[in-house]
Amino acid sequence: MSFGYVLALADDALIAAQRLAEWTSRAPELEEDVALANIALDTLGQARLLLTYAGELEGAGRDEDDLAYLRDEREFRNCQLVELPNGDFAVTIVKLLCFATYQHELYSALRDSTDERLAAIATKAATETAYHVDHARLWTLRLGDGTDEAHRRMTDALGRIWPYTNDLFNGDWIDPALLADGTAVDPATLREPWMSTVDKVLTEATLSAPDDDWAPTGGRHGEHTEAMGYLLAEMQYLHRAHPGASW
């Protein structure tokens, strides 16, 4: 198993958790505040397990905190989708629907990874992400098939988020040896089941997937959007300002 592969999965989960946690105390209703915080907690837990494993694979003595707090922007391997600003609630829900469905398909496939440690983490995470998909599905139905304003905002959100979903299925950064020995999953194989789930939800919500126009890429190679630096500044500030602080 390679450090880079596990690190990319970890970074997806970590950055998604950081964005979701931004909703804490700001969600449209108390129950939603609790729900988004719990989803963030799940993905943060997955990130911690994966970062710890990545650190062991690297063998340079870096633990989960070193990897989360002491790397700079270009060293992060997450897809750009998860770093995009939360926008309004519709953007957050569309992002969650697209990302949670991707994670669920990926973790479900990784249950059969020939890497035992990764398979164990994926088996736990697959069950958790099924809840996240369901949560996003219920909101998509409620908003897409809701008032004109809600429908309009969901349509706008889809337009903004959709181009970034292309890169989820791009496997050009994965060492072919990992695909050959069955430790990693080729993300291209996830596209069809992903589209099938997402399209069904959108159709039921009277929404539709936008036409493909552009497909931004680069996150897996350390190239990020302008939003990433601000996110890292907030996430890493305390740890860097007060190294080793505990309470």
């Binding site: 799940d42 943060l44 837990g45 997955q46 911690r48 397990l49 983490i121 736990k124 995470a125």
Partner: peptide, 8 residues
């Protein structure tokens, strides 16, 4: 064993 991955 944890209940959930992120069990605090």
């Amino acid at each position: 064993t944890p209940t959930y991955s992120g069990c605090p």
